[in-house]
């Protein structure tokens, strides 16, 4: 294809991506180095019948003018990154000095908002991703062995947890695990503790969020593996059986190696998606127990005071996190491309 034709064809999507993905990233990076202007304070003298008093007041006009003149705010360098809500350099330093052991240090770190969010996000990502792969594989093998007449309905119901809006799917589960809901009551009965409440317990909340994560994403792994199973070479399977491989050995030495490239694909997609975990925390109202990086940004942006700089700094740190997660894939692609 000629350069000019190519350029014209990709123009609309390139413009859309440049304007609404690339420039915002740049703008977020720039914004994170600035903080908003403080209000301009003036001292005024109020003179009444009982003498004069000094009072401070906010000079609205001057504040507005200053904000108008420098809409980005005041340059602050890395100050936002270093403050207590982000990397908390000072707090980490003092925790490191004071803490007697790793456990203590870890506990103190988890009190800092950014590390609390990072801790949950990473735990969620690295617990949910392998579980999704395992469950997806098990379901795919089971569905593949079912009679072909019922496979259609099986696939239909399997797709539902993934197709559902994440916010809605997690709400549905949340209502069921409510202390008055069906799963919540069942848990109370099983634990023999009528006061057991998932909402009140941090470990249970973490577990619930991860259960939701697996429930939501397992169908994706299932569908991909199921499609992969349709392309397993029957002759190889037949040969392994003649050589005396039992059922498990057939799976272990024929099917799993065949599905390995798909596993890379699923793992990549799942790492990207789980790292942005966000909606279930809103639905479960879990923020007292678990926050994620995306939730931290949402929290900064919402509400009365929109803390743009703080949100921008967290966004940049999140993007760095995504880059680290993606780097093995990018390095591999680079090498593959170099070989071609």
């Amino acid at each position: 294809m000629k350069h000019k034709a190519f350029f014209l064809f990709v123009l609309p999507s390139s413009v859309a991506m440049l304007l609404f993905i690339f420039f915002p990233i740049i703008s977020v990076v720039v914004q994170s180095f600035y903080v908003s202007h403080e209000q301009v304070i003036v001292t005024v003298e109020n003179c009444g019948p009982f003498g004069c008093k000094q009072a401070t007041a906010i000079d609205q006009e001057a504040t507005a003018a200053l904000r108008e003149a420098e809409p980005l705010g005041k340059f602050a360098g890395l100050a936002t990154y270093r403050d207590r809500n982000h990397l908390a350099v000072d707090a980490v330093g003092s925790a490191w000095e004071k803490a007697d052991n790793w456990r203590d240090f870890g506990a103190q770190m988890l009190n800092l908002p950014f590390y609390k969010a990072l801790g949950f996000t990473l735990t969620f990502t690295f617990v949910v991703t392998p579980l999704v792969i395992i469950f997806g594989f098990v379901i795919a093998v089971a569905v593949n062995s079912a009679a072909s007449a019922i496979r259609g309905p099986l696939i239909f119901f399997s797709l539902l947890p993934m197709m559902i809006t994440p916010l809605i799917g997690s709400l549905i589960l949340f209502w069921m695990v409510d202390a008055r809901g069906i799963i919540g009551s069942a848990l109370q009965y099983l634990a023999g503790n009528p006061d057991l409440s998932v909402k009140a317990s941090t470990p249970l909340m973490w577990i619930m969020l991860m259960v939701y994560g697996v429930w939501h994403a397992a169908p994706f792994a299932f569908i991909v593996y199921y499609a992969g199973l349709q392309t397993v070479n029957k002759d190889t399977l037949e040969a392994s059986r003649i050589d005396g491989a039992n059922r498990w050995e057939q799976i272990r030495y024929v099917i799993i190696p065949h599905l390995l490239p798909l596993t890379t694909f699923i793992a990549l997609m799942q790492l990207m998606d789980n790292f942005r975990v966000f909606e279930p925390i809103v639905s479960f109202a879990a923020n007292a127990h678990a926050t994620s990086l995306s939730w931290a940004i949402y929290n900064d942006l919402g509400g009365e005071t929109r803390q743009l700089s703080s949100a921008a700094a967290t966004s940049v740190l999140t993007i760095i996190g995504v880059a680290i997660l993606l780097s093995p894939v990018l390095v591999r692609t680079w090498r593959d491309f170099g070989r071609k």
Binding site: P24, S27, S294, I297, S315, T318
Partner: peptide, 15 residues
């Protein structure tokens, strides 16, 4: 770009 969580872009849009 696909890997960017959309919420990180939102803080770039708002101002």
């Amino acid at each position: 770009f696909r890997a960017m969580p959309p919420i990180t872009l939102v803080s770039g849009y708002l101002p």
